[in-house]
């Protein structure tokens, strides 16, 4: 129990190590003390405590539960303490580079991100354009929408064999899977956004005699921007989901292949560390797109 609490503290927040005494209920002490102290400090610090402390406490608790659950002799999965020992180099040195397949997880994530960037970037461009067409033209909608609705339900990996056959190469196939996975929410949300452009904006464009390209750039994209960014945000989440699965099958040096490789060599601790990397990266990607959306669409929602 003592070891459990200290280990949990160490892996999550190294700076609290000195605080955590060898008392048997270290976690309970942390939970009880911090909120009481929060009341006496500056509002800014209080805000940080409000936002950072609760997930931290939950994380520590979860690690503790995990540690307890996996500590008995017949456990099939390693406890956090074992992960820390086994995969210390992966956790502490994300950027090491010892040759082709022996590189830090940050490099692998970056390689996967590169594939996502290409596939998702193409999906964003094509998706916004197609969505604009579907939203603008009633006949394009009637013709294309049912097909989009069917295709979007196809799971990402179902596309992989076909794209491998078509491209004859694993890298473009993985990129295609990203593209085809993330394009649907972009198309559908853009179309909804374009359909919801107020008539007033259209009338202004007509009075000014904006040509279709000017209308697209000056009215349609900014007016539909909140919807477009909703689509992009869903799309980037999906593409991050798909890349890991696609890389497991296509190989290469991405984070997905690393997991497959680790599984084949029974390095379960490495898989757990890779999952943490993937989760954090996905979270950051989502927040980045949301932030970009907020910056670009400021003022658009309110009128």
């Amino acid at each position: 129990m003592t070891a459990t609490a200290r280990k949990a503290d160490q892996s999550a927040t190294p700076k609290t190590v000195s605080e955590s005494s060898s008392d048997k209920s270290a976690t309970v002490v942390v939970m009880a003390q911090r909120p009481a102290r929060k009341l006496n400090i500056q509002p800014a610090l209080a805000a940080i405590c409000r936002n950072v402390l609760p997930p931290l406490v939950v994380l520590i608790a979860l690690l503790a539960i995990w540690q307890i659950a996996c500590s008995h002799p017949g456990a099939t999965l390693p406890p956090p303490s074992q992960v820390w020992i086994d995969s210390y180099d992966l956790i502490a040195f994300p950027f090491f580079d010892y040759g082709s397949q022996d590189i830090g997880l940050a490099w692998r994530v970056l390689i996967s991100l590169q594939r996502v960037a290409i596939g998702f970037g193409l999906a964003a461009i094509v998706g916004v354009f197609l969505g604009a067409v579907v939203g603008q033209s009633i006949w394009a909608m009637r013709g294309l929408d049912p097909i989009f609705q069917i295709l979007r339900t196809v799971p990402p990996l179902a596309w992989l064999p076909l794209s491998l056959a078509a491209f004859q190469n694993s890298n473009p196939s993985a990129i295609f899977v990203i593209f085809i996975t993330s394009i649907w929410p972009v198309i559908i949300n853009t179309a909804v956004g374009v359909r919801n452009i107020p008539d007033d904006y259209r009338n202004i464009a007509r009075v000014l005699r904006l040509n279709p390209l000017e209308f697209f750039i000056r009215i349609m994209v900014p007016a539909a921007a909140p919807y477009i960014f909703t689509g992009l945000r869903i799309g980037i989440g999906l593409s991050w989901l798909a890349i890991v699965a696609a890389e497991m099958l296509t190989g290469g040096v991405g984070i997905g292949f690393f997991i497959w490789d680790a599984w084949n060599s029974s390095r379960l601790s490495d898989i757990i560390v890779a999952l943490a990397y993937i989760g954090v990266t996905g979270f950051v990607l989502d927040k980045l797109v949301a932030l970009l959306g907020n910056v670009i669409t400021r003022g658009t929602a309110k009128n």
Partner: peptide
């Protein structure tokens, strides 16, 4: 050449 001022101003908010 026939400019309209709309009832709800309809300025582009962005």
């Amino acid at each position: 050449e026939r400019a309209v001022v709309f009832q709800n101003h309809s300025l582009l908010p962005w």
